[in-house]
Amino acid sequence: MAKKASKTAKAGASTPATVELTRAGIAFTARSYAHDPDETDFGGEAARELGIDAARVFKTLLVDVDGALAVAVVPVSGKLDLKAIAAARAGKKAVMADPALAERKTGYVRGGISPLGQKTRLPTVIDESARAHATVLVSGGKRGFDIEITPADLAKACGATWAEIGRE
């Protein structure tokens, strides 16, 4: 994690997520792996291929809370609690957003949706469990590419709030 954003962006893949972090001067480490095109458990694959505890690898999910889209960032080792994300967004009901809508709004493909550098910046909530780790990994904007970053820097870059939105 000692690399500067600008050095990492030159050495690794350039995506809207890495461009955003570089512009903001936020340090991150690019982590690439060979994505299996038959794999559908994208977060689990990242944890396995990178040799990282799944509790430190976070997935980015789009939800519809009372008609408004929001981003939920939760560990791949668990699930999103829809009631908790609704409450965190001061709503009554949350449902998973349509995958095609998620791709259009973020500019990323499913399995590569990053909470960073999205086409349309949406309100973002990160699960509290991220704070227990020195660094976490989130999608870097394409399948087979993750970004390792401190939880505080992730929240800062996303303009995120914190809440207990994950469950085992």
Rank of each mutant, 00 (worst) to 15 (best):
residue 162 W to G: 00
residue 33 Y to A: 04
residue 154 L to Q: 01
residue 113 I to E: 00
residue 73 V to H: 00
residue 60 T to M: 00
residue 114 S to A: 08
residue 152 A to N: 10
residue 16 P to Y: 02
residue 124 T to Q: 02
residue 49 E to F: 04
residue 32 S to Y: 05
residue 46 A to R: 05
residue 12 G to D: 10
residue 129 S to W: 05
residue 46 A to F: 13
residue 95 V to E: 11
residue 7 K to H: 15
residue 7 K to A: 13
residue 37 P to N: 09
residue 22 T to E: 03
residue 107 G to A: 14
residue 161 T to W: 01
residue 47 A to R: 05
residue 126 I to Q: 00
residue 92 K to D: 12
residue 31 R to L: 08
residue 157 A to S: 04
residue 91 G to M: 12
residue 81 D to L: 06
residue 78 G to P: 01
residue 165 I to M: 05
residue 88 A to P: 03
residue 75 P to L: 05
residue 168 E to P: 12
residue 31 R to G: 05
residue 79 K to Y: 07
residue 163 A to T: 08
residue 8 T to W: 07
residue 68 A to N: 14
residue 145 F to T: 01
residue 21 L to K: 01
residue 103 E to Q: 15
residue 121 R to E: 07
residue 45 E to T: 08
residue 72 A to T: 06
residue 128 E to A: 11
residue 90 A to L: 13
residue 36 D to T: 12
residue 60 T to V: 01
residue 25 G to C: 12
residue 106 T to F: 00
residue 44 G to I: 07
residue 144 G to I: 04
residue 46 A to C: 15
residue 96 M to A: 11
residue 3 K to I: 13
residue 27 A to D: 15
residue 80 L to G: 02
residue 46 A to V: 06
residue 71 V to I: 10
residue 38 D to T: 12
residue 148 E to F: 05
residue 2 A to S: 14
residue 79 K to P: 05
residue 149 I to P: 01
residue 153 D to W: 00
residue 96 M to I: 12
residue 41 D to H: 06
residue 143 R to K: 14
residue 74 V to G: 08
residue 156 K to T: 05
residue 3 K to D: 12
residue 44 G to C: 04
residue 151 P to W: 07
residue 34 A to G: 07
residue 137 L to Y: 03
residue 52 I to S: 04
residue 62 L to P: 00
residue 5 A to N: 06
residue 9 A to D: 08
residue 137 L to V: 00
residue 127 D to G: 02
residue 32 S to K: 09
residue 99 P to R: 02
residue 135 T to E: 04
